[in-house]
Structures are given as C-alpha cells and as structure tokens.
C-alpha cells in the first residue's frame, strides 16, 4: 500500500471518529461543541478535495510529458529513420562508385605499364646489339626510328598513368564523406536509444523531478540546433533547397558577397 492510500485510510478513520464525537455531543445537547465538530469535518472534507486535485494535476502533468515523448518517438519513426535509411543507401552508392572508379583507373593503368615495360625491354636488347657492334647500318636506322617513336610515347603514357593514379587518389575521398554520414546516423541511433530508455523510465514511474531534468536537457539540445552547426554532406532531396549543388554555385554565392 502506498503512502497516498495510507493517508486516505487515516482520513477516513479520522472522519468516522469525529462523526461519533458529533453524535455524542448532539445527544448530550452540547450545541457549541457539535458546531465545532461540524467545522472540523468540513475542513477534513476540503483537505481531501485538495489532495484529489493535486493527484489530478500530477496525472495531467505526466500525461503531457508522455505526449511530448510520444511526439519525439513518432518523429524518429516517421521522419528520421527513413532519412537514415536514405543516408545509408547513399553511403552504399558512394562506396560502390569509389570502388569502380579505383578499379577503372587500375584497369586502364596496368596495360599502359605493361606496354611500356615490353617496348623498353625490346629497345634495351637492340641497344645492347648496337653496343656489341652487331647491327648493320639498315638495322640501326630502323632502331633509331623505333627510338624516335618510343620516347614521345613514354612521355604521353606516363602522363596518362599519372592521371589514373591521381584518379585513384581522389576516389578515396569517399571515406571522409561517408564517414561523416555514418557518424550522423550513429547519433540518430543514440537518439532512438535514449528516447526508448526515457519511455521505459516514464512507464516505470519516474519521479516528477527527474522528468523536469530530462525536459531541460531537451531544451538545451534544441537551442544548440538553432545555431549554425556542421552537418556533413547533404544527402536528402529535402535538404536541397538551401544547399549549393556544386563548386560553381559556391563561387557564384561568394562572388555575390564581394569575393
């Protein structure tokens, strides 16, 4: 039995005792005393009324708090979880693109490296024949033409190799971009966890003071959100409105600001 029920029983006992006193006083013709007892009984009645009112107020307060939490949970379920799914799908796309970009560059670079290795090996063998004076004048002229073609080819194909290697380098930017998105989803998962824990605490009957504290924390979080904060890559279609779509738009915006 909790303290509230105990208090009610005690109040009932007291009412009964005072009622008996009243009967005794009336039977004895003690009108003054009977009037005082009646006043007492009325006060007791008022006390109970206030207690009931207090109980109702607290229930209302808790219901409102619950409603607040329900709203947060439904927001998570309806908006943020689907958003997170879209973000994670975007992560899959980005990692896939980066892997293909890397593989494409490798597939194009390898034959270039092999071709250069093959031709330089053949030229080295001829050069050695020339050094051993085993080459006729005609053969030397042919060798000279081969060398004339090879040198610019090395220049050009090494340039291509450099481009492919740079492409592999740039493809690695996915790690930063997807990392930022995943971090954001982790924060969401923590948010869901916290909301569920709060819900369990509430249904387990947390004290009103603890609830006040929780509500305060939420407000602080909201306040933090209102300032301009880092958000990482914008992924969702709904985020496109106030977002630039590429470097050109950044440059336009900055030049409009006098840059």
């Amino acid at each position: 039995m909790d303290s509230q029920n105990l208090a009610e029983v005690r109040a009932d006992d007291e009412t009964l005792a005072r009622a008996r006193d009243l009967v005794v006083a009336l039977e004895a013709g003690k009108e003054e005393e009977a009037r005082l007892i009646l006043d007492d009984l009325a006060r007791l009645r008022e006390g109970q009324l206030f207690q009931e009112l207090g109980k109702l107020t607290r229930e209302l307060h808790e219901t409102l708090k619950n409603f607040h939490l329900d709203a947060r949970l439904s927001d998570l379920a309806e908006q943020e979880i689907p958003d997170a799914k879209e973000r994670l799908n975007h992560v899959i796309d980005m990692t896939e693109q980066a892997a293909h970009r890397t593989l494409n560059a490798v597939e194009e670079a390898l034959p270039l490296a092999e071709g250069l290795e093959e031709e330089s090996g053949a030229i080295r063998a001829e050069w050695e024949r020339f050094r051993r004076k085993e080459m006729s004048a005609d053969q030397f002229r042919a060798f000279s033409r081969r060398l004339d073609q090879f040198l610019p080819r090395v220049e050009e194909e090494v340039r291509q190799l450099h481009r492919h290697i740079s492409d592999v380098l740039m493809a690695q930017d996915f790690q930063d971009l997807t990392g930022q998105i995943i971090r954001r989803v982790i924060t969401l998962v923590q948010d869901v966890e916290q909301s569920l824990v709060d819900l369990i605490r509430l249904s387990g009957g947390r004290s009103p003071q603890e609830q006040e504290k929780g509500a305060g924390e939420g407000e602080e979080k909201e306040k933090e959100k209102r300032n301009i904060v880092a958000e990482g890559p914008q992924v969702l279609a709904s985020e496109a409105e106030n977002t630039v779509s590429g470097q050109d738009e950044v440059d336009d915006l900055l030049s409009s600001l006098g840059f």
Partner: peptide, 27 residues
C-alpha cells in the same frame, strides 16, 4: 568541406575565409 548550405558559406565568408571548396572536389 562537405558543408554545402548557403548559410554556412555566407557564415564562413563573414568570418573571413579566403576560399571555399565543397567536397567532393577535383585537383
């Protein structure tokens, strides 16, 4: 940076940035 909101770019400009590149970017 990957931060690509207009507000953010304006914020950086006001804070005195000399250049702003959004990721992903090219060499």
């Amino acid at each position: 940076t990957a931060e690509s909101k207009r507000d953010q770019i304006v914020e950086a400009a006001q804070a005195g940035v000399n250049g702003y590149i959004v990721k992903p970017f090219t060499a």
